[in-house]
Nucleic acid binder design. Structure first.
Lengths: 146, 146
DNA sequence: CTGCCTGCAAACGATTTGCACCAGC
DNA sequence: GCTGGTGCAAATCGTTTGCAGGCAG
């Protein structure tokens, strides 16, 4: 699993390759995102960024997160709600999604990683990767339900 | 796979059990949704409903779709964008998601349906069901790319 | 210097809410 | 008739865009 340091190195490389400036905002936003495993929305990232660097605008956070996705430093995580969620982990992994509170937890499983997908070429679809989306109820919600 | 007729029967039963009125709007919206396999947004459902029954308000479509989810006549489908998508299929099935146009296609596979999930109890998570989310590029986008 | 980036404010798209009226049972 | 449903307009939430000035290379 990539560390925050690894991620920063990836950012430097990506910016250099694409001739893009390496701004302090991009550094800070990536530090915040790389640190989290809860698949935050752009607004949640913005809130966390405020603590380290007050004054960064929401707009910048939205734009920078979008740039991270294009540069493959992050991906948009599957969710069932109305705000886009970002995930700094670009390797294959899976998700436990709480249907009550919408929390998204990572699920590690080499067995699931190795699943062979059925052929989708007859549908004309080129499959690049996959992830498993497990629906259920998280520990906190189960406790709260009692 | 449930037919439109099956779905209507489910709606009647669900309304009776919960003591809820069976309105023409609910019938119409369910007819429209049950007919589609493209995981439409609420707005897309509203557009289609307009053709059969002009005058139904967006608000009603949003509220009714929400009710369908509570009554388990539909589910919210995993997606990576910013509008909620609805799926009339409540049985286990999987999705092919185009990263270029956001289209969502159903993927049938008894083999995938039978996958044994790893134990998530040690995380305190109660797993109820799962689906596989395949990322890639659909036939139309591949054609368009050339 | 020059181009891309940032912040601000306004626009936009998706969804929810308050309220008065209407329709199933 | 009573209860919950519907439509409308306004409010709210999440996100994007246009523009003027600022900073990295």
């Amino acid at each position: 699993m990539a560390t925050v340091t690894d991620k920063m190195a990836q950012l430097e490389t990506a910016c250099r390759e694409h001739g893009l400036p390496l701004t302090v905002q991009r550094r800070t936003i990536l530090e915040v995102l790389a640190d989290r495993t809860d698949h935050p929305t752009a607004d949640q990232v913005w809130e966390a960024v405020q603590e380290r660097m007050p004054g960064v605008s929401r707009t910048t956070v939205y734009r920078v997160l979008d740039a991270f996705v294009r540069l493959r430093l992050a991906v948009k995580a599957p969710h069932t709600g109305q705000s886009v969620r970002f995930d700094p982990r670009t390797e294959r992994h899976h998700h436990l999604v709480c249907v009550e509170c919408d929390r998204v937890l990572d699920l590690e499983s080499p067995v699931l990683d190795g699943i062979r997908l059925p052929d989708t070429k007859r549908l004309g679809f080129r499959a690049d990767d996959f992830s498993i989306h497990v629906r259920g109820v998280c520990a906190d919600c189960r406790r709260r339900n009692r």
